[in-house]
């Protein structure tokens, strides 16, 4: 059972990594707008997608206010 001395810190470290990732995401403004993304998913059902429709999955640059 002594393995718990190693496993527990590792588990907590993994959790810490997730927290750091969350903090970075918040600081980059990914959570600034929580209302538009739920509307945007509707658009994937588009009948005839056009240029520019699917190439912007991620945020290419940040809004102001860093």
């Amino acid at each position: 059972m002594s393995v718990i001395f190693i496993i527990l810190p590792i588990a907590l470290a993994l959790g810490a990594i997730a927290v750091v990732a969350f903090i970075l995401a918040v600081r980059r403004g990914q959570f600034d707008d929580l209302d538009t993304p739920p509307m945007r998913i509707v658009f994937d059902d588009e009948a005839h997608p056009r240029a520019g429709g699917s190439q912007r999955r991620d945020r290419p640059h940040e809004p102001q206010g860093q």
Binding site: D33, D35, T36, R56
Partner: peptide, 15 residues
């Protein structure tokens, strides 16, 4: 961007 040449990106913030 699909409708008007020269526009490369448009993103709406609904709220």
């Amino acid at each position: 961007p699909a409708a008007l040449g020269g526009v490369t990106e448009a993103r709406v913030d609904f709220r």
